[in-house]
Design a protein around this nucleic acid. Sequence first.
DNA 1: GGCTAATTGACATACATCAATCCCTTTATT
DNA 2: AATAAAGGGATTGATGTATGTCAATTAGCC
Lengths: 253, 253
Amino acid sequence: MESAKIAQNIECSNCHKQSDDCSKTFDCCCKNCFRDDNTSILQALSKGELDYLVEGKHQIHYKPGETIIKQNTSSTYVVCVREGLAKVYVEGVRGKSIIIRLISNQDFVTGGGLFNGNIQKFTISAITPVTVCLLDSSKLANLFSENNSFSVELLRHHTKQNNSLVTKLVNLTQKYMPGRVADTLLYLKNDIYKNNTFSVPLTRQDLSEMSNMTKESLVRILQQFKTSGLIKVSGNTFEIIDENGLRSISRNG
Amino acid sequence: MESAKIAQNIECSNCHKQSDDCSKTFDCCCKNCFRDDNTSILQALSKGELDYLVEGKHQIHYKPGETIIKQNTSSTYVVCVREGLAKVYVEGVRGKSIIIRLISNQDFVTGGGLFNGNIQKFTISAITPVTVCLLDSSKLANLFSENNSFSVELLRHHTKQNNSLVTKLVNLTQKYMPGRVADTLLYLKNDIYKNNTFSVPLTRQDLSEMSNMTKESLVRILQQFKTSGLIKVSGNTFEIIDENGLRSISRNG
DNA sequence: GGCTAATTGACATACATCAATCCCTTTATT
DNA sequence: AATAAAGGGATTGATGTATGTCAATTAGCC
C-alpha cells in the first residue's frame, strides 16, 4: 500500500477520495473524482491539464424537475454529472419530447454546440436532486488542440453518440410498441442500473417518452409483459424475469 | 489572371482543373479537386498532408444499385464522392430501411467506424453511376493527430451530423406523413438540387424511405400536394410552387 | 382529504397492407 | 419498321390494424 503519502490529505466526506482540492473546499467536483472513472474521456488528460480544466468550474445543485441546459439556447458550458439522475431530451413538435438518454455519475454531455456555435440541441433536466459540474467549453476546445489523445477520445465519444442516435432512429421508427418498451426496459437494466431489479424515479410519462408513445400505451404494454411473465412491476420497481424474452421481442420489432 | 503559370499543366478533361496529377493520370480524384470545395473538411490540410492522404487512394466506379459500403461490415475506408449520386441508409428491422442522406460531389462519409473499430453503421449504395475515392482511414487518423485545425473540422463535421440525426429523429417520429414528405421535398430542393425544379433519379420507394412511410402513402401525399397547388409533379420531375406552404406543413407536423 | 399519477375502457384515425390496374420502357417477333 | 410481349415501377382503391385521444376511475402520497 502506498497509502502513507496519500493519507496526508484529508479524505473527502462526500466522494471518499483523497485530494487536496476536496480537503480544502469539500467540493467534490475534484480532480480525483474525474480520474476515478475509467470510461471518462477526461482520463486522457494530464494532471496539469485537468487542473486547468477544473479551475473555475461551477458546481451546481438542481432540484428534481429543474432545467440544467435548455434546448436552442446558447451555452458555453459542458455538463458533467457528479451525483443524481438527469434526462437528456429533445423537445419536438406539438409539445412531444423524446428522451435520448439518462445521465448519472461521471456522464459527460457536450450537447452539440462544441465547435459549432454553442447552440444546445438538447434540454437536460434533473430527475432526482442532481449535482453537476459546468465546465467552460472553450477550455475543452483548448485542450482538444493541445492533447491529441484527448481529442481522439472526444471524437470517439461523438462517434459513439452518433451510432447510438442511428440505433435509436431505427428502433423508434420501425419497431412496434412492444419492441420499443422492451428496448427501454433493457436499457434501464443493462445500461443504467446493471441489475435485474431496479427502482426508477421516472414517471410513466418519462418511460413513454423514452419509448416514443403515449403514457397510456406504455402502461398497456407493461401490463402485457406482466401477464406474460416477462417482468414484475410494482409501482416504480421493476424486475426483469425473462431477459431473453424481452430481447426476442426487441429483435422482432 | 495568373493562368500563365497554371496553364503549363494540362487541363483535366473530366474535372477541368489544372493539376499535374490529373494531367498524368487523367484521374480526377486529384488534389486540386479536393481543394476546390469550400465546404470540405480537407481544406484544412496542407499540400503535403493532402499528398499523403491522396497517395494510394482508390478511385472506383459503381453502377446504379451497387453497394459501396455495407452496414455491419468492417471497412477501413472513408468514402469521398467525386461524381454521381449515392444514398446513405440504415437497414433496420423487417427489411425496412431509412435513407439518412444523399451524397454527391465532394461529400464525405466517415460512417461511424473512425476511431471506433471500423465497423460501418450505414450502407452506401449508388443511385446514378458513381465515382468515389476510397481513402485509408488510418491516414485520416494520422492527420487527425498532426493537424489541429483538421481535427477541429472533423469534430465539427461529426457534431453537425449528430445534430442532423437528432432533427431527423424528431421529424420522423413526431410528424404526420404530410410533414415528413414536405421535409423530404424541401431537403431535395434546398440541400441537393438548390433549384425550384429538379429531376430526381430516385424511385418512389427511395422517396418513401427518406420519409419513413410506405411508397403507397408517399404517392398519396404527393397527390394531395399536387391538388393543393403546392407542387407540380410529372414523373420524376418536381417543381416546388409554394415553398412557404410546405414549410408550414413541415412545422405543424 | 385533496392532489397528482396510474390505470382502464371506449372510440377515432393515421397509416400499413394487399390487390388490381395503369403506365412506360425494353426486348422479342414477324 | 411495326407490333406484340414482358417487366417494373407508379397509381388507385378497399380493407385491416396499430396506436392515439378522450374520459372516467382508481391508487398513492404529503
